[in-house]
Design a protein around this nucleic acid. Structure first.
Length: 861
DNA sequence: TAAATAGAAA
DNA sequence: CAAGATTCTATTTA
């Protein structure tokens, strides 16, 4: 049911009001809608599509054909309504018009010089579309990244959304609402719709007004707006938390952005540029002296700006920080955290600097300039693809603040790596940087220093070892200047809450490759850590050569009929194994490995399916790492993979996605990731990201079994990659695959054997009778490791036997159930849920459940 | 080395 | 279509 278009002016809703006011500003007659303009090149095709679609629909609704036609005919009531509602201009309706319906924004008057302006806007959803081919696109991109959430960024058109979060982020990097509005106005092809203007004003009114400042070891709630502060003080929760006798509201002067422009970086939002209209920023301009020394001089410059703003603040106690934060959030004044580290005399300074020859890349500086935009350290999140030097950003931040730093990582592997990176990029004394993991619990020697640890180490709420407890007390007992949070997207919000509440830090910097996980958890991050300060565009970075170019190819492998038959009747679990073990896929894998090894590439094959991972690796005589591989062995295998010219292919389980960071400097430039069964799951995009970012360079293959579940996941992955601006290629035929030496499973006989073995192995609970762990001939691991594995499998075997029990009966059992279900359904249909009373036995309840389930399935299917 | 725990995914 | 159960993995400590 389409919403009524006619609404009495009095009852206009917000968005309708916008329309109404747009109507009152008559512009030049614009016959084109956004859509039709964009489509103008393809008018003919489009017309065809239209008639096609119409035909189709007419065919579908023969009875309603007349109605249908009249509904979509020019001058029908429907369109009349639209005209009345949106604009009094005479509008041209073409065949495409009906398809835009509510999204027809042709009533928004185009500016005369619209061709020189790069942005379109959808006032209803606050979506902004950027023409990448427009001369002003560069500036507009910088601006949009600051104020809006990137939705989709393929080659020519980028889509951004204005959201409360994004505006919050914009305000927090120092943009004023009127900057946002003016700059939008400048870039938009139409005038800024009033709805949007009002939305921006509404959202930003309360954002960025309140700051939490840790000064002289005390927390202050600070605001430039005395009224806002009064509001807070009058609040029933916050008011009572003010520390009495701290002199009420004090007024001082806040540092301004004035003296703090970091050389080689763009101003907070590219607003500056836009205003000055000095357009060209050379991508990757190396001529700019953009090293850390300049950054520091810039930061150390005193603010001799006369444009100082008065700020007012009141003190709250440490214990109430979280309460106040939460309350402020609830009443619409989210608190920004800022650390005035230059004026912190309480915490000792840390002896740390970047090594003199260290060059920061422009985008890294840009992100840091967002963080230090006003001379203080703002808490927030920086989004950079892996391989783009997230670590260096974190390290530079630490070098700027020069106070105690705590680094949190996801795994103990990356803990070690972070420390190494610190030693590599900075002159920090090795004694001042300590690791806190299960293995090592050292503190730094001096009065301050850096601690690198994992989330689980800090959040672990269970009984701790004595050393851990002491260490935790140590961590809790002091104030940290900076908390570096690595890979924030994989850590659940609850964990953050625990980390943040247990460790006091003046500023927090979250680093991540993507904020793609748009479940509710990610929005929590925004307020737990801070707003997103910067997000790099992958495509741009790879074009500028900062991160490897990724070419994505998907290889579609048909399933041999035997396999497919088995696949169709297999359990969900077995299905996974089957499509992973698809012999055609195996061949494709073999072929690609062969091809790339011949070129001297290093290849990583990812597989989330353990059985197939092992089978592939063993069959192809390659090394592999999975969850059960011991730490020492992992290191050994990795070491060999990196330096041993004999070991060029590595099979990785999903351990590679998260906890195994491949070292930055692989000797070979060409690392070819190969996805066996491509990652699964609703956030396949997430895995795709990890795959594409795990030090990926040149081609990146996904092997997909045709006509299986995998295809569905692959479509999601494609969508993600296309959004990131990557081209996507589908390969259905690998040239000369039959010439691959020792091509596996070339005969039907072998294929059948593979199938048999796969089925048998997996029915028996994947007992890997093969000596899996001995590829590197680890002494002692043979028996011990085997024992471990066997023991581990013992558990699994039990499960396997249970499923075997079920499996033993499975055919008959399922058949029987189906029969029962059918009977019940028939009976239920007639008799109304036959026998469904309280006195049901467990058996009947089970049946009932089954029935409901199958009903639900029937409904779904 | 094993057990406990926790999170992610399908 | 969602929530729960389930499986897997990784992390910790004893």
């Amino acid at each position: 049911m389409p919403p009524k278009r006619k609404a009495p002016p009095g009852q206009a809703t917000a968005s309708k009001a916008g329309r109404a006011s747009a109507m009152s500003t008559p512009g030049p007659a614009t016959p084109r809608s956004i859509g039709s303009s964009a489509m103008s090149d393809a008018d003919e095709d489009f017309d065809e599509d239209v008639s096609e679609a119409q035909k189709e629909r007419e065919a579908l609704m023969t009875k309603e054909a007349d109605e249908f036609v009249s509904k979509f005919t020019l001058g029908s009531k429907r369109f009349q309504g639209q005209i009345d509602d949106s604009s009094r201009e005479v509008r041209r309706y073409d065949a495409a018009t009906p398809f835009f319906r509510k999204r027809d924004f042709s009533h928004l008057p185009l500016k005369p010089d619209h061709q020189n302006r790069p942005l379109w806007i959808d006032p209803d959803s606050c979506t902004i579309v950027l023409e990448r081919f427009n001369p002003l696109a560069e500036q507009a991109t910088d601006f949009l990244i600051t104020i809006a959430e990137p939705k989709s960024r393929p080659t020519f058109l980028h889509e951004y959304a204005l959201t409360p979060h994004s505006l919050y982020a914009a305000v927090s990097v120092g943009l004023r609402p009127r900057d946002i509005i003016n700059t939008l106005e400048r870039f938009l092809k139409t005038s800024l719709p009033d709805v949007v203007r009002r939305k921006i004003e509404d959202y930003t009114r309360s954002f960025g007004k309140v700051k939490l400042v840790l000064k002289h070891n005390s927390y202050f709630v600070e605001s430039a707006d005395a009224e806002v502060l009064q509001t807070l003080l009058k609040d029933k929760v916050i008011g009572g938390l003010r520390i009495q006798g701290s002199g009420g509201v004090t007024t001082s002067y806040a540092p301004t952005m004035g003296g703090l422009v970091i050389p080689g970086t763009q101003n907070a939002a590219g607003v500056h540029q836009a205003n000055l209209n000095k357009a060209e920023r050379m991508p990757g301009d190396a001529g700019d002296p953009s090293n850390e020394a300049d950054l520091l001089t810039a930061l150390n410059e005193e603010d001799d700006d006369d444009d100082k703003e008065a700020v007012h603040s009141f003190q709250i106690s440490e214990d109430n920080v979280e309460t106040v934060q939460k309350r402020c959030l609830d009443i619409g004044y989210p608190i920004l955290e800022e650390y005035d580290f230059r004026n912190d005399d309480v915490n000792p300074n840390l002896e740390i600097d970047l090594r003199p020859n260290t060059q920061i890349r422009p985008y890294q500086e840009k992100s840091l300039s967002k963080m230090f935009g006003n001379g203080r350290a703002k808490s927030g999140i920086i989004v950079l693809p892996c391989g783009a030097g997230k670590t260096l950003v974190g390290i530079t931040a630490a070098c700027t603040i020069k106070k105690g730093v705590i680094v949190l990582c996801t795994s103990s592997m990356s803990v070690v790596q972070w420390r190494q990176e610190f030693l590599k990029w900075s002159n920090i004394n090795p004694d001042d940087i300590a690791i806190f993991t299960a293995e090592s619990k050292n503190k730094f020697s001096g009065s301050t220093g850096i601690i690198v640890t994992t989330y689980s180490m800090v959040t672990n709420s269970r009984e701790r070892s004595h050393d851990s407890k002491k260490m935790m007390d140590f961590l809790r007992g002091r104030e940290w200047g900076l908390m570096l949070l690595d890979e924030v997207h994989v850590v659940p919000a609850e964990m953050f809450r625990r980390v943040i509440s247990s460790i006091k830090s003046h500023s927090k910097l979250g680093l991540t490759a993507t904020l793609l996980r748009e479940d509710d958890k990610i929005s929590h991050l925004n307020f737990l850590i801070g707003p997103k300060l910067y997000e790099a565009n992958w495509m741009e970075l790879s074009q500028q050569g900062h991160i490897a170019k990724v070419q994505c190819a998907e290889v579609w492998c048909p399933m041999p009929t035997e396999f497919y038959d088995e696949y169709l009747r297999a359990s969900a679990r077995m299905k996974r194994t089957l499509y992973a073990m698809n012999p055609r896929k195996f061949q494709a894998c073999q072929y690609l490995i062969n091809y790339h090894e011949a070129r001297g590439d290093k290849i990583i094959v990812f597989s989330d399916e353990l059985y197939s991972l092992k089978q592939y690796a063993l069959k192809l005589k390659k090394v592999f790492i999975y969850g059960g591989t011991s730490q020492a062995e992992r290191m050994q295998v990795l070491e060999n993979f990196q330096h041993n010219p004999e070991v060029n292919t590595l099979f990785l389980s999903k351990i590679g996605d998260t906890s195994l960071d491949l070292p930055e400097d692989l000797p070979h430039p060409d690392l070819v990731p190969l996805r066996l069964p491509p990652p699964r799951g609703p956030s396949a995009a997430f895995s795709a990201r990890s795959a594409a970012t795990t030090r990926a360079s040149t081609p990146f293959y996904s092997l997909v079994s045709k006509d299986t579940q995998e295809m569905y996941y692959s479509s999601k992955r494609q969508a993600f990659l296309v959004d990131q601006g990557y081209a996507f290629k589908v390969i259905t035929q690998l040239a000369n695959i039959e010439n691959t030496p020792d091509l596996a499973f070339a005969t039907p006989q072998e294929t059948r054997e593979l199938l048999q073995r796969t089925l048998v192995d997996n029915e028996r609970g994947a007992e890997d009778d093969v000596e899996t762990d001995d590829l590197f001939g680890k002494p002692g691991r043979g028996r011990g490791g085997g024992g471990g594995a066997r023991k581990g499998n013992g558990v699994r075997r039990t499960a396997g036997m249970l499923s075997e029990l079920a499996g033993g009966q499975d055919m008959a059992y399922i058949e029987q159930n189906k029969a029962v279900n059918k009977a019940l359904r028939a009976a239920g249909g007639k008799k109304k849920a036959g026998g469904g009373g309280e006195g049901q036995s467990k058996f009947f309840k089970g049946i009932q459940r089954e029935k409901d389930k199958s009903k639900a399935q029937a409904r779904a299917g």
